[in-house]
Design a protein around this nucleic acid. Structure first.
Length: 265
DNA sequence: CGGCTTTGACCCGCGC
DNA sequence: GCGCGGGTCAAAGCCG
């Protein structure tokens, strides 16, 4: 098992058509062998996919890999890909001398001052109740162009926690909801936990955070946190807390079972 | 009684 | 500068 360059970079890919859930080992693994430090290792092909909105798609255009395929479900998908994979893919592209359509995206206007990194998921109604964090609704607004209002939630587990969640019903797909997570929890303990595996996984990261947080953080290359989903999310635990939701959505969307889903442990 | 939802008012960034 | 749209605030009421 190799230890990778742990700078994780969020990359939007414009197509899920090449996705083959049954042929690829996506499972992240903990590697304790290298030193006193604990590393997360992914198989080479692993990509963690999230469904994102067209709006976020714009946000991520600087990172675009566009292959012109058709998207599954709405919008496109955002993937967390270890940088080493990105480098290798880039190297392969150079070797093949493929002239990719480069996207020189220049934002039309500055981002909002309080705009933070966001993760947008498309979930079935049943999956909404499996959120492990306690949320308190603080607003609801009608959204232009949508028949459904958008609800605003903040984390109620801890005072001063900046984590936010927006929920709106998809106007294109009945029974599905667009859930947007903004900012990060300033506490690592969800209000409730489900599987033992997930509990163990979160505990591992809490231990890392306590012991070697700074040192491990230095292993990761800096990135614009407005535009990249950072490894910090993993240490904060909400990455794994949300993984089960993604897993559920994945199994229902791609029709695979628990053992073939990339989000099962 | 504490924590929650509801809802109108307010704030702020952006386009014109 | 003004209007629009999205995000947040906060008072009031509900609920267990």
């Amino acid at each position: 098992m190799m230890v990778m360059d742990w700078g994780l970079q969020a990359v939007v890919i414009g197509s899920s058509s090449s996705y083959s859930a049954n042929n690829i080992d996506f499972s992240p693994k903990l590697d304790f062998q290298e030193s006193d430090h604990q590393y997360l290792s992914f198989s080479h092909e692993m990509k963690k996919e999230f469904f994102i909105s067209d709006e976020l798609e714009e946000l991520y255009k600087p990172f675009y890999h566009v292959d012109g395929g058709q998207n599954i479900l709405m919008g496109s998908s955002i993937s967390l890909i270890p940088k080493e994979i990105i480098k290798e893919e880039k190297r392969e592209e150079e070797q093949q001398q493929v002239v990719a359509p480069t996207s020189t995206y220049v934002p039309k206007y500055k981002k909002r001052k309080n705009e933070q990194k966001r993760v947008v998921l498309q979930l079935k109604a049943d999956d909404l109740s499996s959120d492990k964090w306690a949320w308190r609704k603080y607003g609801q607004k009608p959204i232009k162009g949508s028949p459904y209002p958008r609800s605003y939630y903040r984390c109620s587990s801890s005072k001063g926690c900046l984590a936010r969640k927006q929920v709106e019903q998809s106007c294109t797909e009945n029974g599905t909801f667009i859930v947007t997570y903004t900012a990060e929890h300033n506490h690592s303990q969800p209000t409730r936990r489900n599987s033992l595996a997930e509990t163990l996984m979160i505990d591992e990261f809490q231990e890392i955070e306590m012991n070697d947080h700074e040192e491990i953080k230095n292993m990761f290359e800096g990135s614009d946190e407005n535009e990249c989903v950072s490894i910090q999310e993993m240490f904060d635990g909400d990455f794994f807390a949300g993984l089960e939701d993604i897993h559920d959505g994945f199994t229902s969307s791609f029709g695979c079972n628990n053992s073939t889903s990339p989000f099962s442990f």
